[in-house]
């Protein structure tokens, strides 16, 4: 009996553990090792170079551009996405007459907002590339038809606008998912709380600040972690959509793109692995910090 239990546990765990070790842990371990070498990616030999690759990262101006851009995205993309997501979700629940119901047609909105989530990120980037086309694109076309010719821009080719244009696409593509997530969270708040707030004379903003937000804070923390990780990546959209890619002149460079270019175009897999390891620790730190800060105040419904 006792042996049977061990055997059962081993039988259940070992296959999954082996797969995890071979396809997840082993590549991680190898990437850590490779980041200390000059591996070219095309030969079965690599020379140990110590921390040389990491020292080099600090002097690589394109990589520093990438870090700066990822940092900007890390702040802007989650904040804007969560802000819009919360606004739309609460409007769908409480934006209607008297603050008791959602605005008319909120079910349909929820479905429409979710649409971008169904498209692959590459498809989204291609579509938005067309939208941003300065001569035939939807955006400039709309501005021209409104008589706002002065506002038309070469969106992806202006250094000051390109990163904003990229972030807009990231927000657009993810906001629908968070509307649905926050909607579900608001749904789980007992109705009486809102009614009590209403009886106490709280307006829309006061209700949101004192009732809705504190009770969906957990979800907001999770959203921050996911969006933060997405903002540290952003490779697909930048690679497909931007000038260069990563341009103009590094204006939309992201760490993932630098990594990809060094590995697959320059044959510097060792150096690219160092970038990957740096990105790994940045993402890990972000996740730990965000989850730690979320642990402090957990409101419990009586």
């Amino acid at each position: 009996m006792r042996h049977g239990r061990w055997r059962f546990l081993a039988g259940a765990l070992v296959p999954a553990l082996v797969l995890h070790a071979v396809f997840v842990l082993s590549p991680y371990a190898q990437a850590f090792y490779l980041s200390l070498t000059d591996w070219t990616g095309v030969a079965g030999e690599a020379h140990f170079v110590g921390a040389g690759n990491y020292v080099r990262l600090g002097n690589d101006s394109l990589f520093l551009h990438a870090v700066r851009n990822n940092a900007v995205m890390l702040v802007v993309v989650p904040l804007v996405t969560i802000g819009i997501g919360l606004f739309l979700a609460s409007m769908m629940h409480l934006g209607g007459r008297g603050g008791r119901r959602g605005i008319a047609g909120s079910g349909a909105y929820q479905i429409v907002y979710f649409f971008p989530q169904l498209l692959s990120l590459v498809v989204i980037a291609v579509l938005w590339g067309f939208v941003y086309n300065p001569n035939t694109g939807l955006l400039n076309g709309a501005l021209r038809s409104l008589g706002l010719d002065g506002l038309t821009r070469s969106w992806l080719a202006s250094p000051s606008l390109a990163l904003i244009a990229v972030m807009a696409v990231l927000v657009w593509s993810s906001v629908g998912f968070y509307v649905v997530l926050f909607s579900a969270a608001i749904d789980s708040i007992p109705r009486e709380l809102f009614e009590a707030a209403l009886l106490d004379g709280a307006g829309g903003w006061a209700t949101f600040r004192t009732v809705t937000f504190p009770l969906v804070r957990e979800n907001v923390h999770v959203a921050f972690v996911y969006l933060g990780i997405a903002a540290l990546d952003a490779f697909a959209v930048v690679q497909v959509m931007t000038v260069g890619p990563g341009g103009p002149d590094g204006a939309t460079e992201v760490i993932g793109l630098s990594l990809y270019r060094n590995a697959f175009q320059y044959g510097k897999f060792g150096y690219a692995s160092a970038m990957g390891v740096a990105l790994f620790f940045a993402t890990l730190t972000l996740a730990v910090l965000a989850l730690r800060s979320g642990r402090k105040e957990r409101l419990e419904l009586a």
Binding site: L25, S26, A29, Q30, W39, G44, E45
Partner: peptide, 17 residues
């Protein structure tokens, strides 16, 4: 097991020439 396995398995730089 997770730490030991990758050490046992062949690494990318383990080519034989």
């Amino acid at each position: 097991a997770g730490v030991a396995l990758p050490l046992l398995s062949a690494c990318v730089t383990g080519g034989d020439d």
